[in-house]
């Protein structure tokens, strides 16, 4: 292992926001913005290498220590779990897990056992277990909103940002199951081996986040 840290960042929206954060902290993200054919992108003015991955793979890479750090949504962490340090709430990528039902239906009104469709079956199971309800959870890969329409499920648990998709399909969010946003995670062995380097990186990121908060009027 060289003296450079390696970070895995979730592709898509979180990537753009991560780059903005890094650039605000003074990191030259040119190679990440213009990746060409390379898969590992070196930050020229900071000992950090960047790889891009799908959200669950970010966790896998960090857990196995092939990446020291990772940026991934709390929704993926809640669903997939794993052993690593979650060191910083990056604030961006904010959305919520919501329980949504068909408009006009009464979810808690009967003792009939319920069926819930979700892309996040583990999270859904834990959410209802905490309520002491035993429900059947069905994993759906694609458009979860379809399940209640087709009569497959009584409700869905899904990520909601604006609620527009739900509304268009006659669904209403009735309960927030969790607020989620992007997290900075750290491999356990890396934390021990490169404590000072990692601490330095976290301090840099945190300073930017605090500045942002104060600019936007604070929390």
């Amino acid at each position: 292992m060289s003296d450079r840290l390696r970070i895995a960042i979730t592709k898509g929206r979180l990537l753009e926001q991560s780059i903005q954060l890094f650039e605000a902290a003074g990191l030259d993200c040119g190679p990440v913005r213009d990746p060409g054919r390379r898969l590992v992108h070196s930050i020229p003015n900071y000992p950090l290498d960047v790889v891009l991955a799908k959200a669950p793979d970010v966790i896998t890479y960090v857990e196995h220590g092939v990446c020291d750090l990772g940026i991934v949504g709390q929704d993926t962490i809640l669903e997939k779990g794993g052993t690593f340090f979650s060191v910083l709430d990056l604030g961006f990528g904010a959305c919520r897990f919501a329980l949504a039902i068909q408009e006009g239906s009464d979810f808690y009104g009967s003792y009939k056992s319920k069926r819930i469709a979700s892309k996040y079956p583990e999270f859904t199971r834990a959410f209802f277990a905490a309520k002491g309800m035993d429900v059947d959870v069905i994993k759906i890969e694609g458009s979860v909103e379809l399940a209640p329409i087709l009569g497959l499920a009584d409700a869905i648990v899904d990520i909601v940002e604006t609620g527009a998709t739900l509304k268009a399909n006659g669904l209403v969010p009735v309960e927030t199951a969790a607020q989620v946003s992007a997290r900075l995670i750290v491999n356990i062995a890396s934390m021990k081996l490169y404590k000072n380097q990692i601490d330095d990186f976290i301090v840099k990121c945190r300073a930017q986040l605090t500045e942002r908060d104060s600019r936007s009027g604070g929390m």
Binding site: F84, S86, V87, L88
Partner: peptide, 9 residues
């Protein structure tokens, strides 16, 4: 559980 974000909160 190493969830320092939630710990801070």
């Amino acid at each position: 559980g190493k969830d320092l974000t939630a710990l801070d909160r």
